[in-house]
Deep mutational scan, measured.
Amino acid sequence: TLFEALYDYEARTEDDLSFHKGEKFQILNSSEGDWWEVRSLTTGETGYIPSPYLA
């Protein structure tokens, strides 16, 4: 399933992933509550992002 970022986000820890509004992601793991592990389709990087920032 693909999701798109609604807002920009700046990583706060080394496990987080910074991203920009409009960036698209593949969800790798959504079992961690509000923090999902994703792969950016723009950069190929993986990390955790806050799920409320996605649509």
Rank of each mutant, 00 (worst) to 15 (best):
Asp8Thr: 05
Glu14Lys: 12
Phe19Ala: 07
Leu17Asn: 00
Ser30Thr: 12
Trp35Gln: 10
Thr13Lys: 11
Gly22Trp: 04
Tyr48Gly: 00
Asp16Ile: 11
Glu32Arg: 13
Ser18Gln: 02
Gly33Met: 08
Thr1Cys: 15
Leu28Glu: 02
Leu6His: 05
Val38Arg: 00
Tyr53Thr: 12
Asn29Val: 07
Leu6Arg: 06
Thr1Ser: 10
Lys21Ala: 09
Pro52His: 15
Phe3Cys: 10
Asp15Arg: 15
Leu2His: 06
Ile49Tyr: 00
Pro52Trp: 15
Pro52Arg: 15
Ile49Cys: 05
Phe25Asp: 01
Leu54Tyr: 07
Glu37Tyr: 15
Ala5Ser: 04
Glu23Ile: 01
Tyr48Arg: 13
Gly33Cys: 12
Trp35Cys: 10
Ser40Gln: 04
Ile49Leu: 03
Gln26Ser: 05
Leu28Asn: 01
Ala55Arg: 09
Glu4Tyr: 15
Thr46Val: 12
Gly47Gln: 03
Ala55Phe: 07
Leu2Thr: 09
Trp36Val: 06
Leu17Phe: 11
Ile27Asp: 02
Leu17Gln: 01
Leu6Thr: 13
Glu10Trp: 08
Gly47Met: 06
Leu41Met: 10
Trp36Met: 13
Gly47Ser: 15
Gly44Asp: 02
Gly22Ser: 02
Glu32Gln: 13
Leu54Thr: 06
Tyr53Asn: 12
Arg39Asp: 00
Tyr53Ser: 13
Tyr7Trp: 14
Lys21Ser: 05
Pro50Arg: 09
Pro52Ala: 15
Trp35Ala: 03
Ile49Asp: 00
Leu17Pro: 02
Ile49Ala: 10
Gly22Phe: 08
Ala11Trp: 15
Ser51Ile: 05
Asp16Gly: 14
Thr13Ser: 11
Leu28Phe: 05
Gly47Trp: 11
Ala11Val: 14
Thr42Trp: 15
Glu23Trp: 13
Gly33Arg: 10
Lys21Asn: 03
Val38Met: 02
Lys24Val: 12
Gly22Met: 15
Thr46Lys: 14
Pro50Thr: 07
Asp8Ser: 06
Asp8Cys: 10
Leu41Trp: 03
Leu41Tyr: 02
Phe25Pro: 15
Lys24Gln: 10
Thr43His: 01
Glu14Asn: 11
Leu54Asp: 07
Glu4Asn: 03
Glu23Met: 03
Trp36Glu: 00
Pro50Ala: 06
Glu4Cys: 10
Ala11Ser: 14
Glu37Lys: 13
Glu4His: 06
Gln26His: 09
Tyr7Pro: 01
Asp16Gln: 15
Glu45Trp: 08
Thr43Tyr: 00
Gly47Thr: 14
Asp15Leu: 13
Leu54Gln: 07
Thr13Gly: 14
